[in-house]
Design a protein around this nucleic acid. Sequence first.
DNA 1: CACGTTTGTTTATTAAATCAACAATGTAAA
DNA 2: TTTACATTGTTGATTTAATAAACAAACGTG
Lengths: 373, 373
Amino acid sequence: MPDSKQLQRIVNRSHVLQTLRVSSGISRIEISRQLGLDRSTITNLVNPLLEMSIVKVLSEGSSPSKGGRRPVLLGINENFGSILGIDLQNSSFSAVLTNLNGEILKEWRGDMKFMGLVETILRIYSLLENDINEMPVPLIGIGVGIPAIVDTEQGFVRKATSLHIRELDFNREAEGKFPVPVIIDNDANCCAWGQLERNKERRLDNFLNIIWKLHRLEGEEAPEEIEIGMGIVLGGEVYYGSGSAAGELPEDLLSRDAANIYRQSGTGWEIDEKALGIYLDKLFNFLIPIFNVFDPGEIFFGGHFTRFRSHVEKHMSGTSFKVNFPRTDELDTAYGAASMFVEKLFQTPVLKGDREGAEIREYDLFSRFEQER
Amino acid sequence: MPDSKQLQRIVNRSHVLQTLRVSSGISRIEISRQLGLDRSTITNLVNPLLEMSIVKVLSEGSSPSKGGRRPVLLGINENFGSILGIDLQNSSFSAVLTNLNGEILKEWRGDMKFMGLVETILRIYSLLENDINEMPVPLIGIGVGIPAIVDTEQGFVRKATSLHIRELDFNREAEGKFPVPVIIDNDANCCAWGQLERNKERRLDNFLNIIWKLHRLEGEEAPEEIEIGMGIVLGGEVYYGSGSAAGELPEDLLSRDAANIYRQSGTGWEIDEKALGIYLDKLFNFLIPIFNVFDPGEIFFGGHFTRFRSHVEKHMSGTSFKVNFPRTDELDTAYGAASMFVEKLFQTPVLKGDREGAEIREYDLFSRFEQER
DNA sequence: CACGTTTGTTTATTAAATCAACAATGTAAA
DNA sequence: TTTACATTGTTGATTTAATAAACAAACGTG
């Protein structure tokens, strides 16, 4: 629908928003310099965003060294809207509410028997609805992470062993049932989205985000199930591969095979160092070649990897990769699911299809709220 | 230098050229439909290209089913210019001259002692110069493939064991010494570029291109040296990784380790099936996990892999990947090097840097030849 | 042969950028 | 204090490149 002229404006506006997001506290003139656009163009783009309160004035900056008018420092209004991120597992969930700056406003954890994807998410949402509505920030989107192979673009779940799903058209089934748009993705990819969000100022290019996650098995108490997941970010965007299965590890490196690492003791879980060593040998034997072929700029080890930091560092010592152990917790996937939504909000819209029906991506902030507020 | 308005025109012009390249024999109106631009816009973009003879009229198409004026079918003028592609090895080279449609106009093979990168390429060029100049198509660029880790964007050779190079600023050393622009890249990446060119109508998204190449060792007669190279294409573009080393395989899978596969017999080279089997087991043990993690839409096995086709098919039979054995010959790398240049000619120009000095990519066809012809 | 259809061009119009001038606001030296 | 100068940000005129609309050209069909 939007013609090429309007599209240019939309794209430029999006560039402005991205710049504001990445370099919060920047002046209009500095934006114009970074984007190579005229000063007046930025003024014209920014002012409507200010009126809509998507952008806000932070403060007056100090005047430049040689004198001159003080720059007016701008930034994204992080309270323009909130995002609900849900980490959906077989029999439990966790969830976070974040603002547009990726700051956590609220968090939840709970048990929830899985009863179909849409149904379960609806239940969780109605469980949290009151909490969300009493916040001063209105909800504008939901992101969901599940242990599955997901075509996020199409909203299509290909395969989810632990949830017993195959070829589910989520978008169609969820149509009209939620008050805000819902996006789903693989949980490991969500964590990669979260890493993109947390490091947005660094404008990371290529990195791998590997997580070590524990799941309680359905019914059983112990041992827990290990999930090793890899999220791949290339050129600043999550890479899905041609079948949405990029980053999936072989079965024998996941699940029960390594379950005897965790031994139940009197107080709780205890780690069998020998079993751990054997498992990590096998794992890194697999991973290191992958690292070499991808040649990422950085590798993040999240989740329970932080508990085995020294082991990981030993295995990585032969390589020249930059290794990173981000602070992580049980909410990583939920946080990442929310981050995914935020990242998509600020992505520069492109004509999708390229071929037929030129349709704009549906998450563009300005277009969505142009009339409403 | 070019402002945002001119940039839009350049980008749209580039889209038109890409469309013409991918779907040769297309009418203006059909282009306008595919790109979502107005008919008159396409007319205005195409006509200058016709005058410059970058684009040519193919023929009158048949009139549409319900009557109406016959569409004027357009296509890239493949003879607007020619590209020299060079495959540079330690003590020999091969080269091809292609037109803009990736058709081979001429080819050469020869021995050439390596004497520094720029010097050697210059020698090869002067060797072929007369042949090239007597062609009716003017040379507009040179692409070079070398067995090395290369930062193509910067024109910087990081490491080339067999050529004894380390940290060489090619662009600086070559400055002003060639009559046309020269681009260098890793040889495996070149082959991937070649595959992109050969399959341009298919608009491939993600694929891996794996080659099995033989090199004569310096001085020695036998055994030859094996080079296994992987070119990675993601989102329709060659992926280089953060250190330009993406796709590099571990040392022990290359070189001499598998040399005893080739045995010299009375008539020539003979293959030791047992040694081959052991080697391929090891190789595919390495490759299959890589395939799974990349989740490509297709995998090409080129070079000598075609001789071991049944072996490869056996190893790949457990997977669900689409396997492809393209017709290949000794000129693949050279052809790919030329293809790389052509592909870059037709890439949509983007502001590089994004941050500072907004500079346009230097290969844009129209801009380069606007005044000249 | 009249009529509808499709391609492609021409001219007027429009959207969104730039350009240039200027107001506002600051530092620093005279 | 005053003057000069530097920098940010806005306003109005101008330019550019797209679209829109009308039309010419070419073709098939009843």
